[in-house]
């Protein structure tokens, strides 16, 4: 049974196409849906969790159509939305109990203890959630989602707004759930997190899937190394043969791709300085998923349209 498959899944809000003919097949894995804010991640999750009707196309969860067999789908999944929705005036245990009751769990108390334990919340279970940290609240939501042992777990930006340690912990828990046989469909706009934790990712840009693969394979497409630079002034009209500018990131980093990157650094430096640019630093590093995104989608800040021509030519050169 395929946990999730979509066929031309599409959602229009009026004339805005938020999700544009997505075809995905998700196996028993941690599958990451990546993209910047507004790229259509939440809309996709809402359709897969039966909360939003697709404008076109279809989606199946464990073989059940999200439109026609919504009730079946809801029995098999859990959904943790992007906004942290836990009742702060209730204790952790009461929050979980509500879901255990609504799911009609038999042996309720046992189950509640078990899921709270899984999420390392046993000690604080009877404190009001008001006193919980952001990371604990998120784990409490995971505990709520686990009471009925779902086949597929949907997590929309589970680490948003959390500090580094709390994020790491959430991802560890997600890994544990996967090892227990659950399929996890997770969205995030933190590329580095997906890089470490997802088995496969889909990169979403303006509602379209720009690439689907394992993070390592996607990074492999960019070659062994990239040149990362900090530059001010005019540049990039005349780059050395075989060096391509991939684009600039919000943090001011400019990324170039090239084979044998480290050997091209001196020449690139000379060219840039000849054009009157001031080079503050040039270094060679391994590609990250963020670079893949840059190559596929272009600069994140300008939100420029998907330029697959650039990516294709780059990939062709890599052979």
């Amino acid at each position: 049974m395929i946990p999730i498959e979509t066929h031309g899944l599409t959602k229009y809000y009026g004339s805005l196409c938020a999700v544009d003919h997505i075809d995905l097949e998700v196996g028993n894995e941690i599958f990451g849906l990546l993209g910047p804010n507004g790229s259509g991640k939440t809309t996709t999750v809402l359709m897969l969790t039966t909360l939003l009707r697709p404008t076109e196309g279809s989606a199946l969860v464990c073989g059940h159509d999200v439109g026609r067999e919504a009730q079946e789908v809801r029995r098999l999944i859990s959904y943790v939305p992007q906004d942290m929705a836990v009742d702060i005036k209730l204790t952790g245990r009461e929050n979980v109990a509500l879901f255990a009751k609504l799911y009609g769990i038999s042996r309720r108390d046992e189950t509640i203890d078990r899921v709270l334990g899984m999420m390392d919340l046993s000690e604080r279970a009877d404190d009001l959630v008001r006193t919980y940290s952001g990371g604990m609240r998120r784990r409490l939501e995971l505990a709520q989602a686990l009471v009925h042992e779902p086949k597929v777990l949907f997590l929309d930006e589970p680490t948003i707004g959390l500090d580094v340690a709390a994020r790491k912990k959430i991802w560890e828990h997600i890994g544990t759930l996967k090892s227990r046989g659950m399929t996890i469909f997770v969205t995030t706009h933190y590329m580095d997190e997906a890089d470490h934790s997802c088995d496969r990712v889909a990169i979403l840009d303006h509602g379209r899937v720009a690439a689907v693969d394992s993070p390592s394979h996607l990074k492999g497409l960019l070659g062994k190394d990239l040149i990362s630079a900090r530059i001010s002034g005019e540049y990039c009209r005349d780059l050395p043969e075989g060096v391509t500018m991939m684009g600039g990131k919000e943090n001011g980093e400019v990324v170039f791709s090239s084979e044998h990157a480290s050997e091209r650094v001196p020449e690139l430096f000379r060219r840039l300085e000849e054009q009157g640019a001031v080079v503050h630093s040039l270094s060679v590093r391994e590609p990250t998923l963020d670079d893949v995104f840059l190559a596929l989608v272009g600069s994140r800040e300008d939100g420029s349209a998907f330029d697959d021509h650039k990516f294709r030519t780059m990939l062709r050169r890599r052979g």
């Binding site: 969790t49 009730q71 809801r74 939305p81 929705a85 609504l102």
Partner: peptide, 8 residues
């Protein structure tokens, strides 16, 4: 959203 996604 969480309630609507429940089978209840």
């Amino acid at each position: 959203n969480k309630f609507l996604a429940l089978p209840s």
